[in-house]
Computed example of a mutant assay.
Amino acid sequence: MPKIEQLIIQNDFYHVFQPIYSFPGKRVLGYEALIRSKSNMVPDMLFQHAMEQNKLFEMDSFSILQAISTYFGTQRSSELRVLFINIFPSTLVSPLFIGFLETLAIQYEPYRTQIVFEINESIIEGVLWKSASFRDAIRMMRELNFLIAFDDVGEGTASFRNILDISPDFIKIDRFFSADLCTTEKKQKVVALFVEYCRDESGLILEGIENEEDLAVALSLGIKMGQGYLLGKPNPLT
Results as ranks from 00 to 15, higher is better:
Ala216Cys: 15
Leu144Cys: 07
Ile124His: 13
Ile98Lys: 11
Glu207Ala: 05
Asp152Val: 00
Gln114Thr: 14
Gly156Met: 04
Arg142Lys: 15
Tyr21Arg: 04
Tyr229His: 13
Phe160Cys: 14
Glu207Ile: 03
Glu207Pro: 02
Glu213Asn: 15
Ile4His: 04
Ser178Asn: 00
Glu102Ala: 08
Asn54Ile: 05
Val28Tyr: 01
Glu32Ala: 07
Leu101Val: 05
Gly30Leu: 01
Ile205Arg: 03
Ile87Ala: 10
Thr70Cys: 13
Asp180His: 07
Val153Gly: 07
Arg81Ala: 04
Pro234Arg: 02
Val195Trp: 10
Ser202Gln: 12
Ile173Lys: 04
Phe117Ala: 08
Ser63Leu: 07
Ser22Thr: 07
Glu185Ser: 06
Pro89Met: 03
Gly73Val: 11
Arg161Asn: 12
Leu56Arg: 05
Leu221Phe: 07
Lys26Phe: 07
Ala132Tyr: 08
Arg76Phe: 07
Met59His: 01
Phe84Ile: 02
Gly154Asn: 05
Ser90Pro: 01
Glu32Gln: 08
Pro234Gln: 05
Tyr197Lys: 13
Gln66Phe: 14
Lys130Trp: 02
Leu193Tyr: 13
Pro19Tyr: 03
Tyr229Trp: 11
Pro168Val: 11
Asn120Cys: 09
Glu52Arg: 09
Glu32Ser: 06
Val191Gln: 03
Gly126Gln: 10
Ser178Gln: 02
Pro43Leu: 11
Gln6Met: 09
Arg199Glu: 14
Leu237Phe: 05
Lys55Tyr: 10
Arg135Ala: 12
Phe150Trp: 15
Leu221Cys: 08
Val42Phe: 12
Asp60Pro: 03
Val191Cys: 00
Glu118Pro: 14
Leu144Ser: 05
Leu231Trp: 07
Leu101Phe: 02
Asn40Gly: 15
Phe160Asp: 13
Tyr108His: 11
Pro236Phe: 04
Arg142Leu: 10
Glu32Tyr: 08
Ser78Cys: 10
Ala137Gly: 05
Asp60Thr: 01
Leu128Cys: 01
Phe146Trp: 05
Lys26Tyr: 09
Ile35Ala: 12
Gly232Tyr: 06
Asp136Gly: 08
Asp200Gly: 11
